Amino acid sequence: MPEDLGVKVRSELFKRKMSQKELASLVGISNAYLSDIINGRKDGPKAQEHIKHIQRILSI
């Protein structure tokens, strides 16, 4: 995930008073895996699908 997108995700979570764990639950992945995606440690095809889902959920 590009760094600016990671910042956007964190910013949206803060604005919505939503935890990363809650977002992970909505996406259907573990909190650890979500953290890896947000921090750019996972970027394969499956992670890209999750990124799109995250973007839809947070409207970013």
Rank of each mutant, 00 (worst) to 15 (best):
S19I: 10
S59G: 12
Q55V: 08
M18F: 08
L26S: 07
A24W: 05
G44R: 15
Y33E: 06
E12D: 04
S11E: 04
S30G: 06
I37A: 13
I37V: 13
N31V: 00
D4F: 04
N31D: 00
S59K: 15
Q55N: 08
L26P: 02
R56L: 11
P45A: 07
I51K: 14
L34I: 09
K46P: 00
E49C: 09
L58V: 07
I54D: 00
K17C: 05
P2I: 00
L5W: 04
N39S: 14
I51C: 10
Q55S: 10
A32N: 12
L5T: 04
G40D: 11
S30D: 01
M1K: 14
K21V: 03
E49T: 11
E22K: 14
G44P: 10
R41E: 12
I29Y: 03
P45R: 14
G6Q: 13
P45G: 07
I57L: 12
V7I: 09
H50W: 09
M1G: 13
M18H: 12
K17G: 10
R41K: 15
I60F: 05
S30P: 02
G6N: 12
P45I: 05
S11T: 07
V7K: 14
I29A: 02
E12P: 05
Q48G: 12
S19Y: 08
S19C: 08
Q48F: 10
L58A: 04
I29W: 04
V9D: 00
E3W: 06
S11V: 02
S59E: 08
D43R: 15
R41D: 09
G28P: 02
S19K: 15
L58D: 01
Q55I: 09
K46I: 02
V9L: 05
G44V: 10
R10N: 11
S25T: 00
D43G: 15
K52W: 04
Q20M: 12
S35H: 13
G6V: 01
S59I: 09
M18Q: 13
K42N: 12
K42A: 13
K52T: 09
G44E: 10
K21D: 00
L13V: 11
F14M: 13
L5P: 07
S30V: 02
R16L: 08
V7D: 02
M1T: 08
K42G: 03
A47F: 11
I38L: 08
G44F: 12
S19H: 12
S35L: 09
A47H: 13
I38E: 02
Y33R: 14
A47P: 07
V9N: 01
R10C: 04
S11R: 13
E3P: 09
R41W: 15
D43A: 14
F14D: 11
P45Y: 05
R56K: 15
R56S: 11
R41S: 12
P45V: 04
Q48Y: 11
V9A: 02
I60T: 07
I38Y: 09
V7Q: 09
K8G: 02
K52L: 10
H50C: 08
K42V: 04
K52I: 07
L34N: 07
H50D: 06
S35K: 14
S59N: 13
L23E: 01
F14I: 07
F14R: 14
A24L: 05
D4N: 11
M18D: 03
M18C: 07
R41H: 15
G40T: 03
R10D: 05
H53C: 08
I54G: 04
Q55W: 01
I38D: 00
G28Q: 03
P45Q: 09
G40K: 15
R41V: 03
H50L: 08
K21I: 03
D36P: 05
S30F: 01
